[in-house]
Design a protein around this nucleic acid. Structure first.
Lengths: 150, 150
DNA sequence: TTCCCTGCAAAGGATTTGCATACAA
DNA sequence: TTGTATGCAAATCCTTTGCAGGGAA
């Protein structure tokens, strides 16, 4: 969701380095490159694809294990979101720069569209409440056919 | 979702055998036992757990490969639903006896509650439409803390 | 008899882990 | 210097597949 960014890459990295420091963690070129690729990408990337992109752009040695370690760390810190689309074997990742949103997938062309609907969010909370649940999060994927594919 | 059944096991099996026949497929004790365990269960079961239950109840030789083959077949026919809960490695399955519903998971005790909300469904459709999508299906899991765990 | 179905074991694919080395602070 | 991060390869875990034998109709 590149378009709605209100933060520059530099600002973002400064904040990231702060976060690392406050956790007693180091920075590394690998982490920086992963973030950079995610920042520049306008699609959702799998760990494999991410590794491929990093290697293509930055000529650095990097193993797939590192990619997973980085993505898991970033996901725990809510810096990235990983989503698993029905029928796929592996997760795809995106930077969590904008506020919460959900995804809609075209089952024909696999396009992923992001959306946010306040009413929908509110309704989920109410439904949870009426079942005695305090809602903490959700996971919603809509599957359909997009405009171009009809 | 055992409680809301409007169909008996025998009726269900008759219908299932019909389906098999109309597809040119056979019946088998393994398929019957898998269905029986799912029918009697009031929880969602993984492939592993399902195999364990079948073996415990019916003393039949059965391999995990068969469980997966059966579950995949049943899922394609929409006779079972498989759902993947965040943080879990494997899907859990339930019989698709009642009409469409979604799930709410307690992140503390892992309880799964089923629910259906017409307004929510309608809203999803509208949101899809306003993004140019014709909604075909969705995948929604709500995560929270249940009554007993608060 | 003719396919379909199963068990077993091996293969697959994505992700994780162990370990020695390299790097950040 | 000290602890953290990485690369590589091996290990895991879940799921699928190949093949030969068994079963349903």
């Amino acid at each position: 969701m590149k378009k709605d960014l209100t933060i520059s890459y530099d600002e973002f990295m400064l904040k990231f380095k702060d976060t690392m420091k406050s956790l007693g963690l180091n920075n590394s070129v690998q982490r920086e490159y992963v973030l950079k690729v995610l920042f520049k990408s306008d699609t959702h990337l799998s760990a494999d694809a991410l590794l491929f992109e990093v290697k293509k752009e930055y000529e650095v040695t990097m193993g797939i294990a590192t990619v997973y370690r980085i993505l898991n760390l970033l996901e725990e810190l809510h810096i990235v979101n990983g989503i698993l689309i029905d029928g796929n074997e592996s997760k795809v990742y995106e930077l969590n720069l904008v506020s919460h949103h959900d995804h809609m997938v075209c089952t024909q062309c696999n396009k992923i569209v992001e959306f946010y609907d306040a009413e929908l969010e509110k309704l989920q909370e109410n439904v949870a409440l009426s079942n005695g649940f305090t809602l903490k999060s959700h996971n919603m994927l809509l599957y359909g056919i997009c405009n171009e594919c009809q």
